[in-house]
């Protein structure tokens, strides 16, 4: 009897852990272990097989931070992040304001506004590769320009940012639409009785009310953009962009150092530096949050 009771007591503790076991093992093996390994590895000399040789302190970090290639990829990553997040959120905000009022056909245009969410980086890259073609592509024809988008030092990073900006419209739109529709209708009505013009209404009433969502989108976009690598790798691997230094980002640089050159020293250190820069940016943003974001 006592034995059975004890067994039941043990089961009561063990049972929930059994349900959690797969998830815990997964996160330990594929998130925490590699993160700790990357962190420790960045302080070691690592051979091309990935074995840790001996402790070198901050040597890896110093070498990477002094490397002009790394300065270049940092600059590229910042340009990309600064271009993508605001433009995409602004376009999505305008779309959300337009789609705010439900109409008979709203399902049609809401779907179209959100559709870029289903796009993948590689398909978008293939489509824009044709659109960017200097002679037969659509973009130069529509804009009346003669830009060699992908193989011009000045335009290559902008060209990549345009793709990503476009792809993020759908995601940002859905969040902003939900936020705007969540605003208490009576607030907007009382404003229109006051005769507030649409623009003023947007800036002085809607913007503060959706500022938590805007802040969330800025933070998540920034975190995502700082870690971008796919577009840079797709275009440089396929040879569509010849000067890789024009578009390589921190993570694509890490990838190339570790995977192509088997230089894990630079690879690990770059990964940790990229993580640290992003983390610091987040902290700064959260300090700004206290000033600029209104919570009810």
């Amino acid at each position: 009897m006592a034995n059975q009771l004890r067994k039941r007591k043990v089961m009561k503790y063990v049972e929930p852990l059994l349900y959690l076991l797969p998830a815990i093992i997964f996160f330990l093996v594929f998130t925490y272990y590699p993160f700790i390994k990357t962190f420790i590895g960045s302080f070691f000399l690592v051979d091309s097989m990935g074995n840790f040789k001996h402790f070198v302190g901050l040597e890896n970090f110093i070498r990477v931070l002094k490397d002009s290639n790394f300065h270049r990829v940092c600059k590229n990553t910042f340009i990309y992040t600064i271009l993508c997040a605001p433009v995409s959120i602004l376009i999505a905000l305008i779309l959300a304001l337009i789609a705010n009022k439900p109409t008979r056909s709203s399902r049609v245009y809401e779907t179209m506004f959100a559709l870029t969410m289903a796009m993948s980086m590689s398909v978008a890259a293939m489509i824009f590769k044709l659109a960017y073609n200097p002679t037969i592509g659509a973009l130069n024809y529509i804009l009346g320009t003669k830009i060699n988008w992908l193989n011009n030092d000045k335009w290559a990073m902008i060209a990549i940012s345009i793709i990503s900006t476009w792809m993020n419209i759908g995601y940002n739109f859905l969040f902003l639409l939900a936020a705007i529709r969540g605003i208490d209708g009576s607030i907007l009505e009382s404003a229109s009785i006051d005769g507030a013009k649409i623009f003023r209404k947007t800036v002085s009433i809607i913007m503060p009310l959706i500022s938590p969502t805007l802040f969330f989108l800025v933070i998540t976009s920034m975190a995502k953009d700082m870690m971008m690598s796919s577009l840079a790798l797709i275009f440089t691997n396929s040879g569509a962009i010849a000067t890789t230094a024009n578009v390589d980002t921190m993570i694509s640089y890490m990838y190339k150092q570790a995977v192509n050159n088997l230089n894990y020293n630079d690879g690990y250190a770059t990964a940790i530096i990229a993580f640290a820069i992003t983390f610091i940016l987040m902290l700064i943003s959260f300090r700004f949050e206290k000033k600029g974001v209104y919570y009810n």
Binding site: F30, T38, V259, G267, F275
Partner: peptide
């Protein structure tokens, strides 16, 4: 329970790209 919940939520802070190379080795 709360510790395990925080452990799981904490993984959101670590981007997959940062641990890419180590996961590849695993």
């Amino acid at each position: 329970r709360n510790f395990i919940f925080m452990l799981i939520m904490g993984t959101m802070m670590i981007p997959g790209d940062v641990v890419l190379v180590s996961n590849y080795q695993t």
